[in-house]
């Protein structure tokens, strides 16, 4: 919160941003036209278009903003005003994996603060910084609507539920080593750029991506199981790497259900 604004210069105005190479521009223009066609008013396409340019370069560059402005008939100032308002648009080169530790009150209290501190120490980076290998950008995030799975870590906006300090460290180690990492809810991780393309509104075409993670996480099912007369489950804790399916409360139910 005490970071200095970037790109602030009181000297000569910047020259216009360079355009995308022709082949890139042609490809992005086709995507952009598809996005714009979804809306009655073209300006509504601005947020998805910013996700789109982020899927090209990994962050929102001046070139990307110029592209959006051209496509929508806006000024670059109008685009920049929007791009700098929303926290999901990255404004500098960043890692393949955006690791966000929830440190809003509930997750923080449940261990998010400890996880965030441990990861900063483990990775040697501060909030919003990227590891030297360009793999991991670490940040703390606000409530991500998974409080019943606290403490929560998000990687490229997939859920890693019920984390501990150790599981979070293993997670970032795996990411840096290039191991295939699977979230507790969500699809096997793709890079930040690929994720940004889904956010622009282009469905994930990978086989099995929609199915991945099952119908619902264990906490989502607790009330339903109780309502069906199934015995109350034991404390649900499933560190990353274990299959949540195995932790369904079949054991206790069989014992006490008679």
């Amino acid at each position: 919160m005490t970071t200095t604004p970037e790109g602030v210069s009181l000297g000569m105005p910047q020259l216009p941003a360079p355009a995308y190479p022709d082949d890139v521009r042609a490809r992005l223009e086709a995507d952009a036209r598809e996005i714009i066609a979804r809306y009655p008013d073209s300006r509504s396409a601005l947020l998805p278009l910013l996700h789109l340019v982020q899927s090209e370069e990994g962050h929102v560059t001046r070139t990307g903003q110029q592209f959006c402005a051209n496509m929508l008939g806006l000024t670059t100032a109008e685009v920049a005003a929007v791009a700098t308002f929303y926290s999901m648009y990255r404004r500098k080169p960043s890692g393949d994996y955006q690791v966000g530790v929830c440190t809003n009150t509930l997750c923080a209290v449940m261990g998010g603060d400890a996880i965030f501190a441990a990861l900063q120490d483990h990775l040697g980076v501060g909030n919003g910084e990227t590891t030297d290998d360009g793999k991991v950008t670490l940040e703390h995030i606000e409530c991500n609507a998974a409080c019943d799975f606290a403490p929560v870590v998000m990687v490229n906006w997939e859920f890693f539920d019920n984390q501990t300090v150790d599981s979070a460290k293993r997670l970032v180690d795996d990411l840096r080593e290039g191991a295939q990492v699977e979230p507790t809810r969500g699809a096997p991780l793709c890079t930040f750029k690929d994720t940004a393309r889904i956010l622009a509104g282009f469905p994930d075409e990978r086989e099995g991506a929609v199915e991945a993670g099952g119908s619902a996480g264990p906490a989502s099912l607790i009330g339903l199981r109780l309502a069906k007369g199934e015995t109350q489950p034991a404390r649900v804790v499933h560190p990353r790497g274990e299959d949540p399916q195995n932790e369904r409360p079949s054991g206790p139910a069989a014992e006490e259900g008679e």
Binding site: H51, M88, G100, I141, N144, A145, M154, N156, W157, E158, F159, P183, R185, G186, A187, T195, I198, L199, P203, D204, A209, V210, A212, G213
Partner: peptide, 8 residues
């Protein structure tokens, strides 16, 4: 935006 599994 921060819930890609749901978006899918």
């Amino acid at each position: 935006g921060e819930v890609v599994p749901v978006l899918r």
